[in-house]
Design a protein around this nucleic acid. Sequence first.
RNA 1: GCACCUGUGGCGGAACUGGCAGACGCGCUAGAUUCAGGUUCUAGUCGGGGUAACUCGGUGCAGGUUCAAUUCCUGUCAGGUGCACCA
Length: 799
Amino acid sequence: MKYNFTAIEKKWQDIWDEKNAFIAENDYTKKKYYALIEFPYPSGSGLHVGHPRPYTALDIISRKRRMQGYNVLFPMGWDAFGLPTENYAIKHKMHPADVTKQNVARFKSQLISLGLSFDWSREINTTDPEYYKWTQWIFLRLFKKGLAYKKEMSVNWCTHCKVVLANEEVIAGECERCHGEVIHKAKSQWMLKITDYADKLLDDLETVDYIERVKLAERNWIGRSYGAEVDFSTTAGDKLRVFTTRADTLFGATYMVIAPEHPYIEKWRSNLKNYEQITAYREQATKKSDFERTELAKDKTGVKLDGVTAINPVTNKEIPIFVSDYVLITYGTGAIMAVPAHDERDYDFAKAFELPIVEVVAGGDITKEAFTDVDSGIMINSGFLNGLEVSAANEKMAEFLTENGLGEKKVNYKLRDWIFARQRYWGEPVPLVWCGCCGWQPIDESELPLRLPEVTSYEPTDNGESPLAAITDWVSTTCPKCGTPAKRETDTMPQWAGSSWYFLRYCDPHNSDFFAARETLDYWMPVDWYNGGMEHATLHLLYSRFWSKFLYDEGLISCPEPYLKRTAHGMILGEDGEKMSKSEGKAINPDDVVRDYGADTLRLYEMFIGDFEKSAPWSTKSVKGCKRFLERFAELSTMITRDKDGDLERELHLTIKKVTNDIEDMKFNTAIAAMMSLINSIYAKGGIDKESLMLFITILCPFAPHICEEMWENLGGKGLCSLTSWPQYNEEKTKVDEVEIAIQINGKVKSAVTVPSDCDEATAFGIIERSGRLTAFTEGKTIVKKIYIPNRIFNIVVK
RNA sequence: GCACCUGUGGCGGAACUGGCAGACGCGCUAGAUUCAGGUUCUAGUCGGGGUAACUCGGUGCAGGUUCAAUUCCUGUCAGGUGCACCA
């Protein structure tokens, strides 16, 4: 068979489409399998070679599951709201919806050309009003439960995009997208109380099968820490409350620090002799961008409060209070007790300001550095804690504080609430109305979807308002509660909104009465296998788990966790091992690869490139190796022999076994290597019998489906190869009669010998002795020990 | 700074639960086919020594455990990713 990939691939893509080969039926009698990849943002630049890697991987899983008899849901859609589309629209004077339409069409044709077995009848688009109707509906549900609230706060403002960013979108003081400078700005924002779900999000990680590094990233991001809150009396006559995880070191607290934004600065205004100096410092601190604050992290700055001091509740000593930006208003109580002997930051600060350093945990050398080890220290200079280990002291101090009304145990999280607003046009409108007398009111559900108004200008504004704010006839409305004139919220939702529930919509994408019918959700959910990028572990993955848990608590879905299994793929780098950048013209266009080598070759290569979880550099030369393999494979149809060959049959069954198992472990590269070895053996033998070849075609089919369909048809296979049964390997047929094992002397390989497979130690040793290969090594020595690993090794220890 | 991950031929990468390191592919070398180039086929390809059978060394580095270590442990160096003063 001549390998005309262009014709073959088009032919089979059309046939799959005509025959609805990959449509997922809601047939509840069948066992289901839901495979999911992260739906892409349809950018203007089209598909990147990075996209096919995870798509092909789960396509292989989906195709194998279908062949194993599962009812498979493998859907695709578009996460299409977002800044680049809006910016492109502004630049080219188009409507973002039209830009989206264009980009989606291009992406879709590219994906189809890769032979991915998506169920296109379930295609969704987050910018479709029929879709975002339900995004808004879920938001209203959150609002009505008190999980959405508006808060005046210091936000991350990208000076370039002119938009507020979530903490997760700020990377080292720069905007994640445009790398513009990010500064702090006060703004009233919609927030979602994801922190209410911190414990569930953390604890339920135990119930799911995610790769460890994803779990780790989420755990660190949520950052739960157990400690205590302690009240310190002040000379202003009130109490200053701090959070600490080291209550055991309370005897060593020699000063206190409050964040520059701490409200007590205003409260103590009349007591503070240096109020001016303090507010000047506060000004300076808030003006700093995150980047500057990070840069200056090593050099501690601050101002001592003149006029208010505190009392250490266990030593009863008077200690000074400082204001310093190394204490964050957003964590704990915004104030700390400083124990310089046992905290690095406090140590640095104490050194800079020449404050006393009192050792309360013995074991380090506090003249050199803070001793922070919690596993080996013993308490000293600590009254009733002396002699205890740190953990016991911590526990005892917490009890002491509680009993004496000085404080209590407390859990804190790094996780912050989710800023759920953007000052942009191309996003879901927030379906709330501000009424002067009734406050924020949800619009009636019957008015959903609240559509984006058709306008001609989407330019962002310098004042931080959304472009929607300028559209007065859209903004002006009436209060749903009292009917008086009111104004709509003009911020839109962040890009993460639509993707927080999209996997639910796939279950029932055309439902106009509900986000998805319960029976479809109960059948298809949860997702059995979800693959996506590592970069989403603390963003999309956490957000979507949060929304799922909320919908579960609302009784709207039946699974508390949306994804049973989560894996992550590595990036595809440029040939130079660096990130493939479009700007430098180094990017490989998948269309070119499909045109020059074919989709099957591209699929195979992306799976063969290396460990799926690790990043790997692209190599056009290596692509040829995969092409060669497929050409040799196509040639097999002219090499059919009449009789079966025993060796080949055994290797075939071993290959079926390896491919079957490797797919489950995402070890696609070794599965392909095994099939390459098999083809080498077939060529060495000069041919293969037809029955064996048909099995070979079947196991290659998930990887290179077009060529397999073509050969399957040419050789008279029944129906579609893609829908035939996955072959069972025969364990008996994988066995060999004899096996070569290595002979080791004192652990070093010296020789080899052929023995019957699975034979016992005595038999093996007998054969080795008789072979005469031992005498040179054992002469004049005694055998101390024999170690025999059947079918592998015989190690003889001599002296 | 802290946490996590990764270090194996010229290159991408294999190696089950500790059991013959370098599968498979690329590249390279030689030969065959071809007017020639390309393609294809055959053989070889970790390093040192030997015509060869063979032999010694070898998985970032230094130790350790073991009959046996790429795999486990300790230390160390290098690269990558994440978090970034989280008390």
